[in-house]
């Protein structure tokens, strides 16, 4: 730690010193000898240039060192890999800002179906509006504003729900429904093929539950309830 601060501070010190010396010299010699330079003989001109060059050189080395020092100091906080933004579904409160705060339209946040958790219910809390009577696929029954969820009959009494991610806008309505009445198998995640990986994710800034964080690019998803080996990674 001490060493680090020493490394950090020493170039700054040197830089300070030589900057002051440099400015002093410049001010005193340069401004006062204005006209002289014009008439200066070749050799004195050379001398003067040399002195200036020398000072510049010193300054250059110190600044170079300074840049290096900043680099090294940052290096101590190095992450072993690239980082990407991801939201933690266990913190997510389904507020709906993922749909609106992303710099992309439609949002790069999509609903993912974790099939392994799904109960394949007939009355799906993520698919149907709460007040729905007839469990048909009629648009007015669907919770999803873009009808992005497809309901497919498998066998009595099971239905499978697939998400058309081209249509999904990441509004989290279905996630809230499934979380409240079902198994919580619908989960929002940043879709990394679509995400631009902004330096500062603009949803992270707006998320009221602070669900967003930078995660290592190698394990870029934070699905709840299943292990990393259980979902299939797809080459981006």
């Amino acid at each position: 730690m001490l060493f680090l601060t020493a490394v950090l501070i020493s170039p700054v010190r040197i830089a300070e010193k030589s900057t002051i010396v440099y400015c002093l010299k410049l001010l005193c010699t340069n401004t006062s000898n204005k006209l002289k330079t014009l008439k200066m003989t070749d050799s004195s001109k050379k001398n003067k240039l040399n002195r200036r060059d020398f000072l510049n050189k010193g300054l250059r080395y110190t600044v170079g060192l300074g840049i290096g020092a900043i680099g090294v100091a940052a290096w101590t906080k190095l992450s072993s890999q690239e980082m990407v933004w991801q939201l933690d579904p266990s913190k997510c409160r389904q507020c709906g800002r993922c749909a609106t705060s992303c710099v992309k339209t439609p949002s790069a946040v999509k609903c993912f179906h974790v099939y392994a958790l799904c109960g394949y219910c007939d009355l799906c809390g993520g698919y149907f509006r709460p007040e729905t009577k007839n469990l048909t696929t009629a648009a007015e029954n669907q919770l999803c504003p873009t009808n992005a969820i497809k309901r497919k009959f498998i066998e009595d009494p099971f239905f499978e729900y697939d998400i058309d991610q081209d249509l999904c806008i990441g509004c989290a309505k279905c996630v809230a429904g499934c979380g409240a009445f079902g198994n919580g198998s619908l989960q929002l995640q940043v879709h990394h093929k679509l995400c631009d990986n902004c330096n500062q994710c603009s949803i992270a800034r707006d998320c009221p539950s602070e669900a967003y964080s930078r995660v290592p690019a190698k394990s870029a998803y934070l699905f709840q309830g299943i292990e990393e080996k259980d979902y299939q990674k797809q080459k981006g």
């Binding site: 993912f112 099939y115 499978e160 299939q232």
Partner: peptide, 13 residues
């Protein structure tokens, strides 16, 4: 019936 896997597209390599 086989449950389909959850597909997670990789981030930029």
């Amino acid at each position: 019936h086989q449950q389909p896997p959850t597909i997670a597209p990789d981030a930029r390599s």
